[in-house]
C-alpha cells in the first residue's frame, strides 16, 4: 500500500506545483498584448515588441514599470459550479452596451434572438422583436439589383430577431478612420479573450480617473488606466455616474454599470454557461454513482483472487 500511495502523492504534488506555477500567471498581470488598442494605425504592419519592463533606461530617471496591475478580485453571481447569471443584471448590462458601448464596439457573434433565449437576459418575444426592429441592417438588393439609394447611401431595412447585432462600422478601415486610428475590439468574446476575464474587463472599466505618476508621460490621445498593459489605453472612460438611467431604479454608479455590462458581456461570450453547469452536475452525479457501482462490481468479480492490483493493495 505505502509504495503506490507514496508515488501517487509525489506525482500529484509535482502536478499541482506545475499547475499552480503555470496557472498562477492568471492572477498576475496579463501579458501585454501587442494590440492596436494602444497603438494608432500610423505604424506600419509589424507590431513592435513590448519593451521589457527590466530594460536599462537611457536617461537618468528610472524607467517606470508599466506592467498592468492585477485585476480587482470581484465576486460574480455566475462564479462557481452552481453560479447562474443574474437576469436583471443581464438586462441592465444590455442597456449599457446598447447605449454606451455599441457606438464603437461590435457584438457580431450575438444574434438579436439570443436576447430571448433561455440562460440569457430572457427578454420576452415582444421585447426582442421591438429591440430588433429598432436596429437597421443592410437590405437585400432591390428589383433593379441596386444596394444603394439615390444618394449613394446603402439600402437598409429593419432588423429581425434572426439578424446579428449590426456593427457600428462596416469594416476595419472605416472603424479606424472614425476612431483616430484605434480599433475597438468586437466584444462578443472579450471576456474569454483576455487574461483575468471578467475581473479584467471590470477593472479596466472602473480603473480610469487616476492621475498618472510623474515618470509616465501620457501620449497624445491616450488615457491613463493602470489595469491596462503599458497603462495607456486609446479608449476614453466610457462609463460615468448616470451614463444610463436604469428603468428598475438601480443606482447608476460607475461600479454598477460596469458590473452589469461585464455580466452581459460574460453571457455574450458564454451563452451556454448555465446549461453547461446544469448538465455538468447531472453528469458528475451519474458518474460518481456509476463509478461506485463499478467499484462494487469490480470487488465482487475479484473477490477471493487476492487482487494485488486493487486500489490500496500491492507494493507499488
Amino acid at each position: 500500500m505505502a509504495g503506490s500511495a507514496k508515488r501517487i502523492i509525489v506525482a500529484a504534488l509535482l502536478v499541482s506545483a506545475f499547475a499552480s506555477a503555470t496557472f498562477a500567471q492568471e492572477t498576475q498581470a496579463p501579458p501585454p498584448p501587442a494590440t492596436p488598442e494602444a497603438a494608432p494605425a500610423g505604424q506600419s504592419g509589424a507590431a513592435a515588441p513590448a519593451p521589457s519592463p527590466n530594460a536599462p533606461p537611457s536617461a537618468a530617471t528610472p524607467a517606470p514599470s508599466t506592467e498592468a496591475l492585477p485585476p480587482k478580485r470581484m465576486s460574480w453571481s455566475f462564479d462557481g459550479p452552481f453560479g447562474v447569471y443574474d437576469r436583471a443584471s443581464l438586462q441592465r448590462g444590455f442597456q449599457v452596451y446598447k447605449e454606451v458601448c455599441a457606438a464603437c464596439h461590435a457584438l457580431s457573434h450575438v444574434a438579436l434572438r439570443n436576447l430571448g433565449e433561455r440562460g440569457g437576459p430572457e427578454f420576452s418575444l415582444e421585447q426582442v422583436s421591438a429591440i430588433a426592429a429598432a436596429y437597421k441592417v443592410p437590405a437585400d438588393p432591390d428589383e433593379m439589383g441596386k444596394t444603394v439609394d439615390a444618394n449613394g447611401m446603402p439600402l437598409m431595412r429593419a432588423a429581425t430577431p434572426a439578424d446579428y447585432f449590426p456593427a457600428p462600422y462596416p469594416n476595419e478601415k472605416a472603424t479606424r478612420a472614425a476612431m483616430n486610428g484605434a480599433l475597438p475590439p468586437d466584444l462578443s468574446l472579450i471576456v474569454k479573450n483576455r487574461e483575468g476575464h471578467e475581473d479584467y474587463v471590470y477593472s479596466i472599466l472602473t480603473g480610469f480617473g487616476q492621475r498618472p505618476p510623474a515618470n509616465e508621460k501620457l501620449a497624445p490621445g491616450m488615457n491613463y488606466n493602470p489595469y491596462f498593459p503599458r497603462h495607456q489605453i486609446a479608449m476614453p472612460p466610457p462609463l460615468t455616474m448616470g451614463s444610463v438611467t436604469y428603468s428598475d431604479g438601480t443606482p447608476n454608479t460607475v461600479e454598477q454599470e460596469a458590473h452589469d455590462v461585464v455580466t452581459f458581456l460574460t453571457w455574450a461570450a458564454e451563452p451556454k454557461m448555465e446549461e453547461r453547469k446544469r448538465m455538468g452536475f447531472n453528469v458528475m452525479a451519474f458518474l460518481i454513482g456509476f463509478t461506485a457501482l463499478l467499484y462494487l462490481a469490480y470487488r465482487r468479480v475479484w473477490h477471493g483472487h487476492h487482487d494485488v492490483g486493487a486500489p490500496g493493495e500491492g507494493q507499488g
Binding site: F23, P32, P33, A34, A46, A50, L189, R276, K277, M284
Partner: peptide, 28 residues
C-alpha cells in the same frame, strides 16, 4: 467531465478567442 463542464478553457489559451491576425503577433 470536470474540465468539460466546469473549467472548459482552463487548459487552453485566451488568445485563441481572437481571430487570426497575420499583422499582429501575440506577446507570447
Amino acid at each position: 467531465s470536470y474540465f468539460v463542464f466546469f473549467a472548459p478553457n482552463a487548459l487552453g489559451h485566451p488568445i485563441n478567442y481572437a481571430p487570426a491576425n497575420p499583422i499582429q503577433t501575440p506577446e507570447d
